[in-house]
Simulated assay, not measured.
Amino acid sequence: MSYLTPDRTKPITARKLGDYFDRAAVLETLTINAQNAVRAAETPAPKEEHPRSIRERLQRNKATINTPKQDTSQREAVQRMVDREAKRAEGKGTGYDRWAAVHNLKQMAATMSIYEESGFSSPEELEAALATASAELSSVHAKLKAVESALREKKDLQKQLLAYIKTKPARDGLKAQKTEKARKNYREQHESDFMIAEAATRYFKAQGISKIPASKALQAEIEQLMREKNTLYNEYREKRERTKELQTVKSNIGQILRREPERGKGRDNER
Rank of each mutant, 00 (worst) to 15 (best):
S2P: 03
T5L: 12
D7P: 03
R8C: 11
I12W: 06
T13P: 03
A14N: 02
R15L: 12
D19I: 06
F21P: 02
R23F: 10
R23P: 10
A24D: 13
A25V: 04
A25L: 01
T29D: 01
L30T: 04
I32Q: 12
Q35T: 07
N36S: 12
A37S: 12
V38T: 14
A40E: 13
A40C: 03
P44G: 10
P46V: 04
K47C: 00
E49G: 02
E49K: 10
P51C: 08
I54D: 02
I54Q: 07
N61M: 13
N61G: 14
K62M: 12
A63L: 11
P68Q: 03
K69R: 09
T72D: 08
E76P: 00
V78T: 08
E85P: 01
A86Y: 07
R88V: 11
A89T: 10
E90V: 04
G91Y: 11
G93M: 13
R98L: 10
V102A: 11
K106R: 15
A110S: 06
A110K: 10
M112I: 04
I114D: 03
E116W: 08
S118N: 05
G119R: 01
G119P: 02
P123W: 00
E124S: 08
E124G: 06
E127S: 08
A131S: 11
A133K: 04
S138K: 08
K145D: 14
V147H: 04
S149E: 15
L151A: 12
L151G: 03
K154G: 01
L161K: 09
L161G: 08
L161R: 13
L162R: 15
T167I: 01
K168I: 08
K175C: 03
A176T: 05
K178D: 03
K181S: 13
R183Y: 01
N185S: 12
E191I: 07
S192W: 01
S192M: 06
I196W: 02
A200H: 04
R202T: 13
F204E: 07
Q207I: 07
Q207P: 08
I212R: 07
S215K: 15
A217I: 11
L218A: 14
I222G: 05
K229N: 10
N230K: 11
T231I: 05
T231D: 15
Y236M: 06
R240G: 05
E241F: 00
L246P: 06
K250Y: 11
N252I: 02
I253C: 00
Q255L: 08
E260N: 05
E262T: 09
G264E: 09
R267Y: 09
